[in-house]
Simulated assay, not measured.
Amino acid sequence: MKILDWYILKRYLFTFLMMLLLFIPIGITVNLAEKIGKILEREVPFAAVAQYYLDFTIYFANLLFPIFLFLSVIWFTSKLANNTEIVAFLSSGVSFWRFLRPYMIGATIVAAFALLLGLYLAPKASKGFNQFKYEYLKNNANVVQTSNIFRQVNDTDYIYVSNFNPATKVGSNFSLEHVVGNELKYKITANNIRYVEEDSVYRLSTYTKRKFQDNREVLETTRRKDTVFPFDVKDLTPEEYIAETLQYDELIDFIEKEKQRGSSNIGRYEVVKYKKWSLPVSVFILTIIAVAVSSKKRRGGMGVNLAFGISIAMIYVFFDKIFGVMAEQSSFNPIVAVWFPNIVFGILAIYLLYNAKR
Rank of each mutant, 00 (worst) to 15 (best):
K2Q: 14
L17I: 12
L20D: 06
L22E: 04
I24P: 01
I28Q: 09
N31G: 09
A33F: 09
E34H: 15
V44C: 04
L54R: 01
A61Q: 03
F65S: 09
F65K: 03
P66V: 00
I67S: 08
L69R: 01
F70M: 09
F76W: 03
F76I: 10
E85R: 05
V87P: 01
L90R: 01
S92M: 02
R98S: 13
L100S: 04
I105R: 14
T108M: 14
T108G: 14
A111K: 11
A112D: 04
Y120E: 12
L121D: 04
P123R: 10
K124G: 13
A125E: 08
F132V: 07
E135L: 13
K138S: 14
N140V: 07
N140Y: 07
A141E: 10
V144R: 15
V144W: 13
Q145E: 12
N148L: 12
F150H: 12
F150L: 12
T156G: 05
Y158C: 06
Y158L: 15
I159Q: 02
I159F: 11
V161H: 02
S162I: 01
N163V: 05
N165T: 07
A167S: 09
K169V: 14
N173L: 15
N173Q: 12
E177R: 14
E177L: 15
K187H: 13
N191F: 05
Y195C: 06
V196S: 10
E197N: 10
V201C: 05
K211Y: 10
F212P: 11
Q213T: 04
E220M: 12
E220T: 09
R224G: 14
F231C: 07
D232E: 14
L236N: 05
T237V: 08
A243M: 07
E244D: 12
E244G: 13
Y248S: 04
F254E: 00
I255L: 01
R261G: 15
N265Y: 14
I266N: 02
S282I: 05
T287V: 06
I289L: 03
S294Q: 02
F319W: 11
V325N: 04
M326K: 10
E328S: 11
P334R: 03
V336H: 00
A337M: 04
W339V: 01
W339D: 00
G346A: 08
L353V: 01
